[in-house]
Nucleic acid binder design. Structure first.
Lengths: 153, 153
DNA sequence: GTCCTTGCAAAGCGTTTGCACAGAA
DNA sequence: TTCTGTGCAAACGCTTTGCAAGGAC
């Protein structure tokens, strides 16, 4: 379960360069579906010569080897996560954060898509996360105090 | 049910320019979730002065008025569709075509996402469409004929 | 030596912005 | 006249490509 990067890299035949190790470990700790830019900015202090090209190269390799997955929910920029366990996603439409939630298995009538071969199923929920609800309540209170009036939704 | 663009535009207070009419009608006929480029290329013969900016402008207006929705399944480019009836999507990973399929309503335990407000649910299926399965079979037959051997998947 | 990893610089591509012209009201 | 729709040109942001330098083996 708690595999180190060494085990994973060995199993997938990825030569363990320091840059690859750090990008892998960053994905492992920060469970926030980072963008390339986020990964780059988070590691540039530690790896001063790092370039975005390298981040792209390493992620591409990880995806080919099956240890990383792209995440793309209603957005133009790609996000990345370790391909560890199956789960679904909740995207907060206020702050843009993507949360992992327990896997939702869609139920549907096979006859509706007869002739189609299904290899992958994806369920995404969109809405407002607890943190943003909290901020909205504070905003609303402020506005009431200022004489305005506004419901949360 | 079969509303004309006139009814829709009147209801949504969209002034019915010819360009808007044609973009709306294109979305209405071609149920293929077109990209901006697809729309542009499809209408440029008929509207020789059309620009992509205008396509973007019109789609942005339609989205604000709620008559068009963006579709974005595992891709960097946006696709568009009329916001007519609720449905789910199947994306063919071979040819990239997105098919409308009957709405799949995800079933999940509310306790799993307690504290989160869900405003939208999305189910996407990915796989191989009938047309691409057909082509793969033909390809495989050709390859067998040529002495090679390759399974479909 | 060869192979692989890295990274600069440039290009590519979809999208947005600034602005100006023309036609409608 | 003012407002609105359109569209050129440029900018922008994310991603990919070409290629070369440096290090590993």
């Amino acid at each position: 379960m708690t595999e180190t990067f060494k085990d994973v890299f060995k199993e997938k035949e990825i030569s363990p360069s320091y840059t690859r190790k750090r990008i892998y470990e960053y994905l492992e700790q920060s469970k926030n579906h980072p963008t390339v830019d986020k990964i780059f900015k988070s590691l540039i202090d530690e790896l001063p010569t790092l370039s975005k090209t390298t981040v792209y190269n390493v992620l591409k390799l990880f995806i080919e080897k099956g240890i990383v997955k792209m995440v793309n929910i209603k957005s133009s920029e790609m996000r990345y996560e370790l391909n560890e366990y199956d789960h679904s996603h909740f995207k907060c439409t206020t702050c843009g954060t993507i949360y992992d939630i327990p896997k939702i298995i869609p139920q549907y009538n096979k006859d509706d898509i007869s002739g189609f071969i299904v290899n992958e199923e994806e369920v995404n929920l969109m809405g407002v996360c607890p943190s943003c609800q909290h901020n909205l309540v504070i905003e609303t209170k402020k506005e009431k105090k200022n004489g305005r009036n506004k419901t949360i939704f």
